[in-house]
């Protein structure tokens, strides 16, 4: 069974085993004051930690064959999408929903094969429609953008 094509699951198993140990260890350091119930906040996490450890050992012993990983050329678009999502979270409040959503949609559209001006136009149109639909129509507040002096 220790065929090199089972490596991925074993690595994942080891990582999850480490996670369960770290999780259990964190739980053991909870400082519990007065107890309102006989169990307290620790045992349930312990239970999860033990079960996770057992299940990850099981995975290490009985791994699936390695999956097909995407080609190296996919790392760039993947990184771009994830990076842009992080940027989106940080820029949403300062720049406002319309601006960041337009840019995000334009980027994704390009990654999905559109031309940049198509993506930008579609993104802007959709962001505008959705913004006013939600804020004015449904009373869901969305950030208007601090740097434009629009509060929130």
């Amino acid at each position: 069974m220790s065929n090199p094509t089972h490596r991925t699951d074993r690595i994942v198993g080891v990582l999850l085993l480490l996670l369960s140990i770290a999780y259990g260890w964190t739980a053991s350091r909870f400082e519990v004051g007065m107890l309102s119930d006989p169990v307290g906040p620790k045992p349930f996490p312990y239970l999860i930690a033990i079960c996770t450890a057992v299940a990850s050992l099981w995975l290490i012993l009985r791994p699936d064959p390695d999956p097909q990983w995407p080609p190296v050329s996919f790392w760039l678009p993947l990184g771009l999408v994830l990076g842009s999502l992080v940027a989106y979270a940080y820029l949403l409040v300062p720049l406002g929903f319309i601006v960041v959503t337009t840019l995000e949609m334009a980027l994704l559209a390009v990654l999905f094969g559109a031309r940049w001006w198509q993506g930008l136009a579609a993104g802007l149109a959709f962001s505008l429609v959705v913004y006013f639909l939600f804020t004015a129509g449904l009373n869901v507040p969305l950030p208007a953008g601090k740097i434009w002096g629009l509060g929130r």
Binding site: F97, E104, M105, G119, A122, V130
Partner: peptide, 13 residues
């Protein structure tokens, strides 16, 4: 290229 970014934009909301 339009559909998927649009779905994602709605998820952000």
């Amino acid at each position: 290229w339009f559909l998927i970014p649009a779905v994602l934009a709605v998820s952000f909301i």
